[in-house]
């Protein structure tokens, strides 16, 4: 496990995080912090607990011991405020197949930020999905569906992005697009927690490797 030094007032801070699944220890006393402008890449083999870590930080999984802090406040009381600042894109894309990209994004944006249709159309265009706004998602390819999901990055005002394997089905252009988005978000003062086997080239990239201790 790699320990990362703590800053004075980190955006996200994880202290003494221990998680067991079944009888197996996934990680023990994991510590890291994430400041604005930083990208933290979580690495590790299959079953090393990358997704579990992501879900713990999101607040989806609470079978753990340890503390999470958001801007210095302990999470556990203030999940709402944290969730307003969080954008999570998991393995499951949250793209409904019968709805169109436009309809999908209208809903998922409303859960957090208000967004108008023109904004959504612009975001879809930026994701290279112009012309597909009104086709049902089942007619899109896996990579295009992933782009629909990633369009939320453009529409969100969340400071923290948590991306779980966002590159899996993207083509070369898509990969470049997403890398640019991540870099831009960091430049603008956001923070990104990302799992991928993809080699990221970013100025302030940090890595955290899970499963080394065992």
């Amino acid at each position: 496990m790699t320990e990362i030094s703590q800053d004075a007032s980190p955006l996200l801070e994880v202290r003494a995080l221990t998680c067991e699944r079944g009888e197996r220890l996934l990680f023990r006393d994991l510590e890291f912090s994430l400041d604005s402008g930083q990208v933290l890449q979580v690495k590790g083999g299959n079953g090393s607990g990358k997704t579990t870590l992501m879900r713990i930080v999101c607040g989806l999984n609470d079978s753990f011991e340890g503390e999470l802090y958001w801007r210095g406040d302990a999470l556990g009381e203030r999940w709402d405020a944290f969730h307003a600042n969080l954008l999570y894109i998991g393995h499951r894309l949250a793209v409904n197949h019968v709805l169109t990209p436009l309809e999908n994004l209208r809903w998922s944006c409303r859960l957090h930020d208000p967004a108008d249709d023109s904004g959504i159309r612009e975001a879809l265009a930026e994701m290279d999905l112009a012309g597909y706004e009104d086709s049902p998602c089942y007619s899109l390819s896996a990579g295009q569906q992933q782009r629909v999901s990633l369009a939320r990055l453009l529409l969100s005002s969340a400071a923290l992005w948590i991306l779980d394997e966002p590159f899996t089905t993207l083509d070369v252009d898509g990969v470049a697009l997403l890398e640019n988005l991540v870099a831009r978000h960091a430049r603008e003062g956001g923070a990104v927690l990302i799992t991928t086997h993809h080699k990221l080239v970013l100025p302030r990239l940090r890595t955290l490797t899970l499963g080394v201790a065992r």
């Binding site: 955006l11 604005s36 405020a81 307003a84 600042n85 409904n96 709805l99 309809e103 209208r106 809903w107 944006c109 409303r110 859960l111 957090h112 930020d113 208000p114 005002s157 969340a158 400071a159 978000h185 603008e188 003062g189 956001g190």
Partner: peptide
């Protein structure tokens, strides 16, 4: 500005309720 004023941009609960119902 991605880090600031997101709380202010927060859609109200009613909008989320209606959006979910509609969806």
């Amino acid at each position: 500005n991605r880090t600031g004023n997101s709380a202010m941009n927060r859609a109200n609960a009613g909008a989320a309720f209606r959006a979910t119902l509609k969806r």
